[in-house]
Design a protein around this nucleic acid. Structure first.
Lengths: 199, 199
DNA sequence: GGATATAATTGCACAATGCAAATAAAATGC
DNA sequence: GCATTTTATTTGCATTGTGCAATTATATCC
């Protein structure tokens, strides 16, 4: 098995303090923290979607939007974007679908007419309450796996990771190859051959 | 604000030991564990995608497939599905794109010719190593937020949540409304009006 | 009041997804 | 051994989701 990780390496690479191409450094997807988070959250989301999708005809974006509006009645599309990590187009369409299906109501803002001000209708609240109930049960099922002290710590850790990940995203991937003056250079040189995103 | 959570509720509902429609029970998306996991993992995934997308022309599915194949050289499409939480169509297309772009090689199994047996090419390993390096840096950046004891606990908690979520998904959402003999009934009765998924 | 900025929407091209059906190679039953 | 069933994978096609440019409407700034 180890042999599989040894290919394509410059035998002199290790000498220059390089760690990026040593076999111990290759990513193991299933133990990668973001992947582990992703797997768990997607399973739960899939489960929830299999409920609200057929039952209410909601898309994931519509459900997320609904949940955000429920928490912040009268929110504008822009606010929903920020709170839900969704882009403005998605939110605009999600709102349109919620309105179309009678789950939400859109009113133009009183002071500033550019703003939307979304709130749930009676039907919207009813749907939200039901999906909420399932969501919380799913959460409870997860939570029973966690002791109270663990939960407190998890909460704290997640808060920090949330902040950190937001900062990292804002910083862009370049920040992880370039601005490293401490000599922690990977085998990826800065000026590579191809075009790259994040311009 | 509280008023917004009080609508559409039967005033007698609380009496029957009901907790699902009380305002304290409504889901707060941003404190919902699966959502918090999701947010963090998606930010990291987006960051990584902004690197490998433009640089190597890989889709998310292709990257995930590549990572899995790197960890298990010679894996079949089926194995990749299971390891990556991807469906067979996605994996089939991801492999096709990897092969097309020269990152992977597909050989029909020696004993059983139905199996695919995928492995990375030299170019595939090279790309993987580079993306790996960034992935690990991102991981490291997250990990610096976490003390060693916390990390050990987090690892343990995630292991349990992984198991639990897999079980929950297998069980289906119905298992969270119905088979509850202990009297923990929500306001959602079992025989509701509509069609539902998970059939 | 005309230029500029902001909020939201819409159209359109393109990518991703889901499912039915096809293909192909075992395995199984008789 | 041959028909039947199962397993692995691929493909076509319709649907849906996404990303971006352009548009509309309103507000703000000299």
């Amino acid at each position: 098995m180890q042999a599989f990780f040894n290919r394509n390496r410059n035998p002199t690479a290790d000498q220059e303090g390089d760690e990026a191409s040593s076999e111990a450094e290759l990513l193991r997807l299933e133990s990668w923290l973001p992947f582990r988070f992703f797997t768990i959250s997607v399973r739960v989301a899939d489960l929830l979607t299999s409920f609200y999708g057929p039952r209410y005809g909601l898309s994931r974006a519509a459900w997320r939007t609904m949940a955000i509006v429920a928490n912040r009645p009268g929110a504008s599309a822009r606010e929903i974007c920020q709170a839900g990590g969704l882009d403005q187009f998605t939110v605009s369409r999600a709102i349109a679908s919620l309105v179309e299906n009678g789950f939400a109501r859109r009113r133009t803002g009183k002071t500033d007419k550019r703003y939307a001000s979304i709130e749930l209708t009676k039907e919207g609240w009813s749907a939200f309450e039901e999906i909420s109930a399932l969501s919380k049960r799913l959460d409870a099922e997860l939570t029973t796996q966690i002791a109270p002290e663990e939960m407190a710590m998890l909460d704290d850790v997640l808060r920090r990771l949330d902040d950190a990940s937001a900062g990292m995203l804002a910083r862009g991937w370049r920040g992880f190859f370039e601005q490293r003056p401490e000599g922690l250079r990977p085998n990826a040189r800065s000026g590579r051959k191809a075009k790259d995103g994040n311009d």
